[in-house]
């Protein structure tokens, strides 16, 4: 039994190293004073260059703007649709859920290409709006998947009680149902935000010339060799998220609620 526990501990550690080794490398090399794959000494040079690089800061702003906006819109549409879908039954509901699953199960390559074709067919020039529409499209399913189970668990009688006591349906929804859905809404938003932030393939096919997110910027720089300035930026982003999650999860009980 002891042997088994020892073995599982080693296994967990190995997988953990596998997942986080590249991240550790990126962080270490963001402090490299040289440019190559040898560590020449500690320096903050790339962090200084980062804040002078308009190209990177521009891409960062685009990435964050698109992630926040698309996650927000997807959360609103997702929440409203959840309420609508839950009132459906049988076949129509099954059709909705099947359609909802498509962007999640489909290959990003096919989704990206098909959206590119449809934007061209609708006469939309590729740019901010097309990236946003694309991101909202692949984000909504994640939001719905986060909210749906919560909605199923909510107690219908409290809502009906509120109505009986004279609340209007909208008021009852805000006061009774919405608070119960809040954890699902929050985790849906967070998931959508993360997916949008990390997306490359769909953005690559739907962006217009001249607009870069961090992903597309990195992809275009791979050929020339990526400068450690991007490592520096990623390190800052990663550490901020780590700190944020740490503070959110401080009260022990809240951990399960949030993600």
């Amino acid at each position: 039994m002891k042997f088994k526990r020892f073995f599982s501990q080693i296994y967990l550690t190995l997988i953990f190293i596998f997942l986080y080794a590249p991240i550790a490398v990126l962080i270490v090399f963001s402090f490299n004073s040289g440019k190559g794959s040898r560590f020449d000494g500690f320096s903050l040079r790339w962090y200084e260059e980062l804040f002078q690089s308009e190209m990177i800061l521009d891409a960062l702003w685009n990435t964050l703007f698109i992630a926040v906006t698309s996650a927000l819109i997807a959360t609103i549409i997702g929440l409203i649709s959840c309420i609508g879908i839950s009132a459906l039954k049988g076949k129509p509901k099954a059709v909705y859920m099947a359609l909802n699953n498509i962007p999640m199960l489909n290959s990003e390559l096919v989704t990206g290409l098909s959206l590119m074709l449809v934007f061209a067919a609708f006469g939309l020039t590729a740019g901010y709006p097309t990236i946003l529409i694309a991101h909202i499209t692949f984000n909504i399913p994640y939001v719905i998947l986060s909210i749906m189970p919560r909605l199923r668990q909510t107690n219908k009688s409290t809502y009906e009680a509120a109505i009986d006591l004279g609340a209007s349906p909208t008021y009852a929804f805000y006061k009774v149902v919405l608070p119960e859905l809040m954890p699902g809404i929050f985790s849906g938003f967070l998931l959508a935000f993360t997916m949008s932030l990390d997306d490359f393939i769909i953005t690559y096919f739907t962006r217009g010339a001249g607009i870069n997110t961090l992903s597309t910027l990195i992809y275009s720089e791979v050929r020339k060799g990526i400068k450690p300035t991007i490592n520096a930026l990623s390190t800052i982003m990663f550490v901020s998220v780590l700190l944020l999650l740490f503070f959110i999860n401080r009260p022990k009980k809240a951990t399960n609620e949030i993600l």
Binding site: L19, P22, F29, S234, F238, L242, L245
Partner: peptide
């Protein structure tokens, strides 16, 4: 879930590219 989603906060191209370094 957090442990496995956290890496996504570092761009996936960059993480894959880091394997070159390794």
């Amino acid at each position: 879930i957090m442990i496995f989603i956290l890496p996504m906060w570092m761009n996936f191209l960059l993480r894959t590219y880091a394997w070159l370094n390794l």
